[in-house]
């Protein structure tokens, strides 16, 4: 009886399964099968022998990676830069979304949203050159700085200011995208809640605090958990197009190091090892943050 029902169900839904099939095949082909390639991180990979014939050397590559003199510095840089970027992007996006949503003129709201989103679509190769000009000693940013102090700030050459430069330009470029998601969450909040709050005498600020913020919190958690997975992605292209020898100490990140070691010199095993290291850290963070979101906020993301 049970089996017949199941078969009947399949008969009526097989078209849907067929529709999913190509996507599944592509997923397996391009996302799961290439994962076998990670074995080269544990091998003395020789191209001629391929990854079936190359000898296994265990964790040697990881040991080498961890003993690289600037590895610790590079990991710390990646973490600091990525955390700052995540925090400030989310914060800016939420604040801007709340402010813009309070606007009355719809045309202004819409255009502000589009303008905020626009830089998200520009690649860093283009923005890098523009931002270097803006933040140079003779640039626009420094003409503002010089209204307050006489000394210009060396944004791109001072290790401390370089991080400020990285985070602020990245926030400017990317907050629009997060903001659009927050807007979507805002529209999902039942307007009746606001009406009843108003009847109870809550002012605008109280409404935001007790209705809007709890209402978008699940979405924020989702964004945060997903962002944590990429915590060691401090933004390769941005750093790569803007860094220079003066700021290696505060701006060199795992990806730029892997690029120099792995791709410029063709050390695939080492580059793979670094990639696996990043994935493992991301995996641990994403699972723990998901677990914490579930435990403390009662919200399940994944």
């Amino acid at each position: 009886m049970h089996g017949i029902a199941k078969r009947l169900k399949l008969r009526s839904t097989y078209q849907l399964h067929l529709i999913v099939l190509p996507a599944l095949i592509v997923l397996v082909l391009f996302c799961y099968i290439p994962m076998f390639g990670i074995v080269i991180a544990f091998q003395d990979f020789m191209p001629t022998k391929g990854f079936i014939g190359s000898p296994f050397i265990g964790l040697e590559r990881f040991r080498y990676l961890f003993t690289l003199p600037n590895f610790r510095n590079v990991v710390v840089n990646s973490l600091v830069i990525a955390v700052l970027k995540i925090a400030f992007t989310q914060l800016t996006a939420v604040i801007m979304a709340l402010l813009i949503s309070e606007l009355r003129a719809e045309w202004f709201r819409k255009s502000a949203q589009s303008i905020a989103l626009f830089p998200y679509f520009l690649p860093w190769v283009v923005l890098g050159g523009i931002s270097i000009d803006i933040f140079s000693v003779r640039g626009a940013a420094n003409s503002i700085v010089q209204l307050f102090t006489s000394e210009p700030i060396f944004f791109l050459g001072d290790p401390g200011w370089y991080r400020v430069f990285l985070v602020s330009t990245d926030v400017w470029k990317n907050y629009g995208y997060t903001m659009v998601i927050v807007f979507a969450a805002l529209t999902a909040i039942d307007p009746a809640l606001y009406e009843s709050a108003m009847m109870d005498g809550a002012n605008r600020f109280k409404q935001v605090l007790h209705i809007t913020v709890p209402g978008i919190l699940p979405t924020l958690m989702l964004l945060l958990v997903l962002a944590l997975g990429g915590i060691l992605n401090a933004g390769f292209d941005q750093v790569f197009v803007t860094y220079n020898p003066l700021v290696y100490s505060s701006g060199d990140i795992i990806d730029t190091m892997v690029y120099r070691l792995g791709f410029e010199q063709g050390q695939y095993s080492l580059a793979t090892a670094a990639g696996i290291f990043k994935s493992i850290v991301g995996f641990i963070l994403i699972t723990t943050s998901n677990w914490m979101a579930q435990k403390f906020l009662g919200y399940r993301v994944i």
Binding site: L68, P69, N70, L246, R260
Partner: peptide
């Protein structure tokens, strides 16, 4: 040399500019 030279070169450049 292929692995270590770039690290040493980068270090040199960083210090000379500093």
């Amino acid at each position: 040399i292929a692995n270590k030279r770039p690290l040493a070169d980068q270090n040199r450049l960083e210090w000379i500019i500093k």
